[in-house]
């Protein structure tokens, strides 16, 4: 099968409490495909962190999950402020999250590092003032 199985989710930027729902949906699909628990966990963490980032920093966006026979690709696209310094953003503990978000326990500066840690590859394309697209891949 060459065509990937594709799922699209809108990540609502106005509703912080519902952030993380796309991750739950993807997890359900992966369970039905019979993937091993560890792979499912990695995908759902990467996806969850990405979703939270889009809600905190970019006012939402869209998530697309493509399932191939040998890998899972997660593409997160937003039209937010963009990331000025990607190397800096990748450092553990670096965060630009506002105080009100931090008070909820988010904004620890672990989002992007975790996404990298739990996936096999990650690319960030970002233009300040235009938006960010992150593509992650988990090999099966």
């Amino acid at each position: 099968m060459n065509e990937p199985l594709t799922f699209q989710y809108a990540v609502d930027g106005d509703n912080f409490t519902s952030a993380g729902q796309a991750s739950v949906q993807v997890k359900k699909v992966l369970r039905r495909l019979g993937l091993d628990p560890e792979t499912i966990r990695r995908v759902s963490i990467a996806m969850y962190e990405g979703e939270i980032n889009m809600v905190i920093h970019a006012g939402g966006g869209e998530a697309e999950v493509r399932i191939y026979e040998d890998s899972i690709e997660i593409v997160l696209r937003d039209s937010g402020p963009g990331i000025a310094d990607i190397d800096q953003a990748m450092q553990e503990g670096f965060s630009t999250a506002p105080d009100n978000i931090r008070s909820l326990g988010f904004g620890a500066g672990m989002g992007l590092p975790n996404m990298k840690r739990y996936t096999d590859s990650m690319q960030i394309e970002s233009t300040v003032g235009v938006g960010t697209t992150i593509t992650m891949r988990v090999d099966l």
Binding site: L5, R31, R32, L33, G34, L35
Partner: peptide
Amino acid sequence: TNNNRLGKSFGESMRLMVKIQ
């Protein structure tokens, strides 16, 4: 015990999932 899987194999599960979608 993995009884969540739709089909007998990953490939079959994928094909079933496409139809379900």
